[in-house]
Design a protein around this nucleic acid. Structure first.
Length: 448
DNA sequence: GCATGATCATGC
DNA sequence: GCATGATCATGC
């Protein structure tokens, strides 16, 4: 031991990591003498601050120097939370460092501020539980981490997408939905703050580089879950994810669903197909074992969806989301709603189109996410249904003729499958759906 | 032919 | 038993 008397050697990554791992399975209340929070309402960041100040015993800094300057190690604490039974997900994106619009335009990816800050991280994850005092959060793991080699091509793409917008003088147009793993998230004390950008007079929101929550979920679960990456050939090495998926599906374009399933070995002895065949197709085409998740999809939060188009290009079915809770709908603003969260979902659409012979033939694959420009229309649908609930008319839905993008419709076992609501008798379970006509427009005329 | 309500099938 | 994805049925 050298350098300090805090229980670790700040000139040794190994020593710092070992010391950090003593936290695993414990809480800060057990492991430190941190005082009670002054203001329990201001909890954001308090866990991380307490780790720095009372466990590692240094004062938190917000300058550009690493937290452990002798070894260039950056400390990041990050919350995970339970969803459903037993699944842990990252509660938030992992913010790496602020973006300086004036200097980022002259950076190269490899030597960028981002890569410098993300190259050596001590990641400490804790279990967030609503209402719990941060001093009582359980530490889940503590480990050094940097961006895996195999993720660098995608993250580089994401970085360049954002930087190109700044170089084009459009920093004000940056959106989290531009990118897959890395994002430029807004970061300011209040939403009115703006910064200047080098190639335009238009002020832009301050933003920070962050690894998306879906990406962090994949990273953080990486050691626990059976997740499998797509094995690339030499020629495929530099392809983006969409190009890779396209190339893999290409040999099957034009096959009927039946032909495709047989070709992929998905037909059962009785000649039928498992109902889950749609999702299995993607796994088989991409060379992923049936039970595994596709690593690249998990990191980008992409879900596969089979879409069958009629001859005129109209999907046979709308796309549904989970049933909503009428009490939550009444009180939750759109921005905080589950529905808004679902709309951030990225999809891989595997598209079949009905031909004159009546057969559905594989016609295309595409990634899709609701464009930001359509969010206000979706919001209108949400708020209209919210208003219905408030007025005691939870039974009244928002029709697809009333909203360009989405509608409300029952989604229940049967008409007896109801949920309580604030202002009247229980009402059949309902959810938001994406309109068929909207999906038709978004999918557009796909090549044959 | 489409919008809307209703229900089925599967897997956990 | 329930959530979820998928699909059917009816009436305009």
């Amino acid at each position: 031991m050298s350098a300090n008397d805090h229980g670790y050697d700040d000139a040794s990554i190994e020593s710092i990591t070992e010391y950090a791992q003593k936290l695993v399975g414990h809480t800060l209340r057990e492991m430190t003498d941190a005082p009670e929070l002054q203001n329990p309402k201001r909890r954001r960041g308090s866990f991380g601050n307490a780790v720095e100040e009372y466990y590692f015993k240094y004062k938190a800094n917000s300058n550009q120097a690493p937290d452990f300057p002798k070894v260039g190690l950056e400390l990041k604490t990050t919350p995970m939370r339970h969803v459903g039974s037993g699944t842990l997900v990252a509660k938030e994106r992992l913010v790496i460092t602020m973006i300086d619009y004036d200097t980022v335009v002259d950076e190269t990816f490899a030597t960028s501020t981002l890569m410098n800050k993300a190259s050596s991280i001590l990641l400490i994850a804790y279990l967030y539980e609503k209402g719990k005092d941060p001093l009582d959060y359980e530490v889940l793991f503590a480990d050094t981490w940097d961006i895996p080699q195999e993720d660098l091509p995608q993250i580089r793409r994401d970085w360049e997408t954002v930087v190109e917008k700044v170089r084009a003088g459009h920093a004000e147009d940056i959106s989290g939905s531009d990118t897959l793993y890395l994002e430029a998230c807004t970061k300011a004390a209040d939403s009115t703050i703006r910064r200047s950008q080098p190639y335009s007079d238009v002020p832009a929101k301050p933003r920070a580089w962050a690894l998306k929550a879906s990406y962090m979920t994949a990273i953080e679960n990486g050691l626990l879950k059976r997740r499998q990456g797509i094995e690339r050939t030499e020629e495929e090495r530099d392809l983006g994810l969409l190009e890779l998926v396209r190339a893999r599906f290409k040999p099957y374009i034009g096959l009927t669903q039946r032909e495709l399933y047989v070709r992929l070995g998905l037909a059962k002895p009785n000649g039928k197909f498992p109902k889950s065949a749609g999702a299995l197709v993607t796994n088989r085409v991409l060379g992923i074992d049936d039970d595994n998740e596709i690593d690249e999809f998990a990191k980008a939060g992409i879900r596969t969806k089979t879409i069958r188009l009629k001859g005129n290009g109209m999907p046979k079915e709308a796309i549904s989301f989970p049933a909503f809770n009428y009490f939550e709908l009444e009180t939750t603003p759109f921005e905080d709603s589950d529905f808004y969260g679902y709309l951030q979902q990225k999809w891989l659409f595997v598209i079949y189109r009905q031909r004159d012979d009546g057969e559905f033939r594989l016609c295309d694959v595409m990634f899709w996410q609701m464009p930001d420009s359509d969010i206000p229309e979706a919001r209108r649908c949400y708020e209209q249904m919210q208003q219905n609930v408030r007025e005691g008319r939870a039974d009244v839905s928002v029709r697809s003729t009333e909203n360009r993008c989405c509608h409300v419709r029952p989604h229940a076992r049967n008409s007896k499958d109801v949920l309580p609501q604030p202002h009247g008798a229980p009402v059949v379970k309902k959810c938001f759906w994406l309109n068929q006509s909207y999906l038709k427009e978004e999918i557009g005329a796909r090549p044959d």
